[in-house]
Nucleic acid binder design. Structure first.
Lengths: 207, 207
DNA sequence: TCTATTTTTGACCAAATAGTTAAACATATT
DNA sequence: AATATGTTTAACTATTTGGTCAAAAATAGA
């Protein structure tokens, strides 16, 4: 029945997310996913035909989760300084909710960059040219009005992303070396960082 | 003979570096390393006893490569602003020479954070407490002298690292989406970034 | 040159792993 | 109740994989 089918299908997908995102494509065993979902291994192949197919599904869902905020950053028409505040706040919040995903995406795309080609193909949002034109316009407006100093769009965008993503992705190293491997201490650090990042970026581009 | 032994041992290590750093521990096959080294698979086990041991060796060497610059950043006694310039320059240069290593380290530590414990144990440099005391002192000095605004050491340090490392680690995503998958374009972008990052950081902490 | 030691190899093994199949089970339809 | 359809399982297969071993080849020492 549809009710039950969706349940099992969803249970599999949830289990697959958990294992794939933590151990990566090559580090994941189908048996572990089956165990975590509480079902037989053959059922995995009944719903998703192969490991690769299941993996793609998980990857696409994970990737899509981080698209909307980027899209807002690029296309919404808040003034630039306001936009930075909003983006940093909501992106760091999202990252705290899904800390494994960025590392997962980065790692898997490094292993096989082709995955992105397929995704871009499916996603009209990021397929279009002139992706950054709108944001660039807003930045230029800010410059003309003397609100910020001249700054190249992509450099700025990447810097903001870097400041948000890096502490989550490199957590084991940073927590291990600079925080004496204390998870609670690192958690407090992350919570406090939102404001630091916002001020850091805005100061950096202040005229 | 020692001459030949070192040669084979080194050939294996070089091949192992290449494969492990690109495909990760779980994605690597011993056979592939043997092929790349041009030797029999059994020889791998003759020189390094197991996949795990060979992997550890590769990981430790890769990790150690990125220690000295961090050490300089923490312990040398240049004034803070000068130090930032020097660190960003030399770190980005190092990253361009070894673009696969940071992603490799981040990924493997995510898979198994225990690795870092062993490494810290072996490395007196990063084992010591009060790692950041010296840098903190220099920052406080800069603040007192009115050269920079008040800023928390770890936040600043992590921001600098983030700005250097992220564009290399997340290259497939960023190049794919913001640079139309053009490697040369991205290469030019990276080359030009050194100066942008230095100015960005120094502006961010300007009083 | 003869012998001992080290290096290298091909053949092999046991365990793990993605995927298959045929049958059992459950559910809906009539 | 009988049948058809969809779901789940246990058992199995073929292949891959890390690792071993005994013998061959190369090298060193006498």
């Amino acid at each position: 029945m549809t009710e039950k089918e969706l349940n099992t299908e969803q249970k599999i997908l949830d289990a697959a997310k958990e294992v794939f995102q933590k151990k990566g494509m090559t580090g994941t065993r189908m048996q572990e996913i089956a165990d975590k979902a509480g079902i037989n291994k053959a059922l995995l192949h009944y719903y998703y035909r192969s490991k690769e197919k299941l993996f793609r599904r998980v990857f696409e869902i994970a990737f899509a989760l981080f698209i909307p905020r980027i899209k807002e950053m690029l296309f919404s028409d808040k003034p630039i300084l306001e936009k930075i505040d909003y983006f940093v706040d909501s992106y760091i919040e999202l990252l705290q909710k899904h800390p494994y995903i960025p590392g997962f995406i980065i790692n898997e795309l490094n292993r096989n960059p082709e995955i992105l080609v397929d995704i871009v193909e499916k996603n009209i949002l990021i397929k279009q040219d002139h992706l950054i034109d709108n944001l660039e316009g807003q930045i230029n407006q800010g410059i003309e009005r003397g609100q910020i100093k001249p700054v190249e769009v992509r450099n700025l965008l990447i810097n903001i992303l870097a400041l948000c993503v890096f502490p989550v992705v490199a957590r084991p190293v940073v927590q291990g070396i600079l925080f004496d491997n204390d998870p609670e201490g690192y958690e407090r650090f992350l919570a406090q960082r939102k404001d630091f990042v916002k001020e850091f970026v805005k100061n950096a581009i202040k005229p």
